[in-house]
């Protein structure tokens, strides 16, 4: 049980694909002009990730090593196309916003990366929890970037007006540079916190050594 929980938490924070591993960077930069599009994009990617990881993990002993990458890609592409059609049929408004970026989930290296690094070596159950963790980590990252860009760029959050009348929209945040600024500053902040923690841990360890040394 602990293992499964670990898989999920790992994807959410410690190995967050967007903020820590910096893989699959196209959607976080391209479709995060609003919180909603970030959220939907994240969920669509999560769905593809879970489906493909599961199927690949099930089929892993049947797929010859030499052709595994093409097979993975075909499987991923199939699920992406299905998700694309489902979105177009059920939530056309969202589909319109995401546009070209849904088909591009195929080339999101997060998905192929998890297939190759995890699903093709691990049991089905762990592959699912891993995909779930990674997918949700990806989703919150995209939503978070979307929130910041939407708040500063349009004064709204999930479409609801947050900023007062006098707020002036920072147009740059809705444009591509805004994505890079936001992304960079978030990674910076997370690293800052990470380094700070690591230093504290080190300090604590050093203190312990000193104490032990004195006692000894």
């Amino acid at each position: 049980m602990q293992k499964y929980l670990d898989d999920i938490v790992r994807g959410l924070f410690r190995e967050n694909p967007t903020f820590r591993m910096l893989i699959g960077m196209c959607p976080p930069l391209a479709v995060t002009t609003s919180a909603v599009s970030g959220l939907i994009m994240g969920l669509a990617t999560t769905a593809v990730l879970i489906c493909s990881s599961t199927l690949i993990s099930v089929l892993k002993s049947l797929i010859p090593k030499q052709v595994r990458i093409p097979v993975f890609i075909v499987i991923i592409a199939t699920f992406v196309t299905m998700i694309d059609l489902i979105l177009a049929a059920l939530v056309p408004d969202v589909h319109k916003v995401l546009g070209l970026f849904v088909p591009l989930i195929v080339v999101n290296c997060l998905i192929l990366g998890r297939a190759e690094a995890f699903a093709s070596r691990m049991p089905v159950s762990r592959s699912i929890t891993d995909a779930l963790g990674m997918g949700l980590g990806f989703t919150w990252a995209l939503t978070f970037i979307g929130c910041i860009r939407e708040l500063l760029g349009a004064g709204t959050l999930f479409g609801a007006t947050i900023m007062g009348e006098s707020f002036v929209n920072w147009q740059i945040m809705q444009l591509p540079p805004g994505a890079f600024f936001t992304m960079g500053l978030i990674v910076f902040t997370l690293n800052l916190i990470g380094n700070h923690r690591a230093r504290n841990v080190q300090k604590a360890a050093r203190k312990q050594i000193q104490v032990v040394g004195k006692e000894g």
Partner: peptide, 20 residues
């Protein structure tokens, strides 16, 4: 293997497309 995988994929997508 590759042929089989792509054939299944194509079939599934075809059905899906017709439905949606």
């Amino acid at each position: 293997t590759l042929g089989l995988v792509t054939a299944i994929s194509g079939g599934v997508l075809g059905l899906f497309y017709n439905y949606t």
